[in-house]
């Protein structure tokens, strides 16, 4: 690929006491791709994300995100990347605009610039009509989309999404996936998506990585993994079959 790496991890390890959460992770994410980070609950996906964000210090190993070391240079990283945690929270007694404005101010975006960006990003996530309502009255799907809007006001190069569709109804899930897809295609934002909802990942991701018990057991485009694990001749494969195969082996 001609694109350069936006995330590079080398021998990244995180231990909590004696428990190893992430074991010797080597990974490269290219600019502009949608990367699906798969694995069962408690496999170390969120810990990996937190290390990329500089919110947790790795026990050993190196990591560079958009060219900076997140532990040494957290501000550069946090300014340029968006992070949507699982079940993102908002200040429920403020409306959507106030919530976004607070985040914009924390990012030192002047009010003059941020007010335009807030409108724009609310439009992207289709929440412009609900802007005056208190966020406490929002449905789960709306909150999740507001989370995306909040991430967008930074105009990030890279977005980390932690289980963005969990708990959404089918319609909400579809809107979310379409939204993620369009962000990648239209704004050329790199997406790092952590999930265990495999059919959804298959729909939108260019490449996937499978992490089991802190180990990255597979990484590559879905077709490639299918070839490797299921045999070339198989025409219809699902990511689930590949995943289960890896899961049983681990």
């Amino acid at each position: 690929m001609e694109n350069q790496a936006i995330i590079e991890a080398e021998g990244l390890t995180k231990k909590y006491g004696h428990q190893i959460a992430v074991k010797n992770l080597n990974l490269q994410i290219r600019e502009g791709e949608v990367f699906g980070f798969l694995g069962p609950n408690g496999a170390g996906k969120t810990t990996t994300l937190l290390m990329f964000l500089g919110l947790t210090e790795p026990t050993s190993g190196k990591v560079r995100v958009i060219g900076f070391d997140p532990t040494r240079d957290p501000f550069h990283v946090k300014e340029k990347i968006g992070y949507l945690p699982e079940n993102v929270g908002f200040y429920d007694d403020m409306d959507a605009r106030q919530n976004l404005q607070y985040i914009a101010r924390l990012n030192r975006i002047p009010d003059k610039i941020s007010s335009g960006r807030i409108d724009e990003s609310l439009k992207v996530v289709d929440l412009l009509e609900e802007v005056g309502k208190k966020v406490g009255t929002y449905s789960k799907g709306m909150r999740q989309r507001l989370g995306i809007a909040e991430v967008l006001i930074k105009e990030p190069q890279l977005i980390f999404l932690d289980e963005p569709t969990i708990g959404l109804d089918p319609d909400g899930t579809n809107r979310m996936l379409d939204l993620i897809h369009s962000l990648s295609r239209e704004k050329n934002i790199t997406i790092f998506l952590s999930s265990h909802l495999l059919d959804q990942v298959q729909r939108i991701c260019d490449r996937v990585g499978i992490m089991i018990k802190g180990d990255l057991v597979a990484m590559g485009p879905i077709e490639e993994l299918a070839k490797k694990k299921l045999g070339v001749d198989k025409e219809h494969y699902t990511l689930e079959e590949i995943y289960m195969k890896y899961f049983k082996e681990a």
Partner: peptide
């Protein structure tokens, strides 16, 4: 309160 409403981790992932 920020922890319960899950805004704390979001707050800390801002450049502050």
């Amino acid at each position: 309160r920020e922890r319960v409403s899950r805004t704390l981790s979001k707050l800390l992932s801002q450049p502050i």
